[in-house]
Design a protein around this nucleic acid. Structure first.
Lengths: 213, 213
DNA sequence: CGTACACTTGAGACCATTCAAACTTGGTGG
DNA sequence: CCACCAAGTTTGAATGGTCTCAAGTGTACG
């Protein structure tokens, strides 16, 4: 039996565009892979060999400067699409933040498959447009918002993204939000230092707006 | 005769994926429009009515905060694609920086057309991935680079983009680069103030690395 | 009990911003 | 031709927010 039949994120992922037969064909060129928290999947500058779907867990997409300065340019949740079709090299690294499970496909085989399945292409296109919107929202945050605005935006944004996708333990979006990020990751997402993140969180706590463990 | 037949950017634009008949069909649902420098094409938050191709000129894509802080999140050159299919509202504004000429299509009609022309979808997908890469590169700049690094990156990047596309008057990429940006725009692209941009350019001039008019 | 690691807190330095003024530039009309 | 103005740009001094560096606190785990 096709593993896709029991896949919880199928309807939201790009696979949702495919019928039973097509799904079987796609499945034939892919395989499941499990990642431990911290484990890398692709490296910035390395050959772009695979694309994938996130089934479970959270991953980060990062870009770095030669001297080590790093920025998280994307967060991948279940049902999100990983990778860069039509490009020989990957321009970013992808690393698991929590334990994760993904469906990987060889890039070449996937490109061929998607080339003959327009509905799939359309789904990928929609997703890519959404990612672009997210990236541009983030550009505005990175360039123009103050430290406190960044942290506030971060908390709001993450409670939407993660709670919706069920990858942030906790019952209500406001009552208890458990994120798979340490201070280092938050800092890399918001373009600040861990000290500044910590200070802002402390300030929010002091003002009674949030509680910390 | 189809205007497309004499279009200089056809091969690089998404239209390059279409043959003569298809081109005629696409042309039937579109029309040419001329924009003066400074003239807006779409507004952030307004209904997303049209998509378009840039034929000539340079446009900016911007996002703003309620209090007026603004960030340029994209620069559109000839052959670039404008607009956001599959979304009822536009999440950004588009304004002409120089006099420009574009091919506009009603969004709905264009979506229908592209839905039945997979090669066109593929072209749009490739373009959107490229835009995403650019946006993410810029995120790294906005979050981690210093003022002087930003200005240097800007000059290099623009000499690639604009000279290649022939929209920056001047003969050589290094000898004479005429950009359609004032200090205000540069500041909005780099996430800085006009004063800082000016100071950095003055410093570069003092070090003999660039000359200014 | 002690070490390791992540997080918090503090003091000082620095870079970019802010506010203000002087300086170009191009266009207009006397 | 020159005076004048508006808009854009450059320059200066002071301010302030974030970073840097350093020490402290807490918590998990052997």
């Amino acid at each position: 039996m096709l593993p896709c039949n029991t896949c919880l994120i199928r309807s939201r992922a790009i696979c949702g565009a495919l019928n039973g037969d097509e799904l079987a064909a796609l499945n034939a060129i892919g395989r499941t892979r499990v990642l431990k928290a911290g484990e890398p999947l692709m490296w910035e500058g390395a050959e772009s060999l695979v694309v994938a779907n996130v089934v479970e867990g959270v991953l980060k997409v990062t870009k770095s400067l030669d001297d080590g300065r790093e920025q998280i340019v994307g967060i991948l949740c279940p049902a999100d699409f990983i990778g860069r079709p039509f490009s020989a090299v990957s321009h970013q690294s992808v690393v698991a933040l929590s334990d994760a499970r993904i469906c990987v496909f060889a890039r070449g085989a996937f490109e061929t498959f998607s080339g003959s399945h327009p509905q799939l292409q359309t789904k990928i296109l929609e997703r890519t447009f959404s990612e672009l919107d997210l990236a541009r929202d983030w550009m505005l945050l990175l360039s123009r918002k103050s430290a406190s605005e960044r942290v506030a935006t971060f908390i709001l944004e993450m409670s939407h993204r993660l709670v919706d996708h069920g990858c942030a333990g906790g019952k209500g979006p406001i009552d208890d939000l458990r994120l798979p990020f340490g201070r280092r990751q938050i800092a890399d997402i918001l373009g600040m230092t861990i000290e500044t993140v910590s200070r802002q969180l402390t300030t929010l706590k002091a003002r009674g707006l949030i509680a910390l463990p």
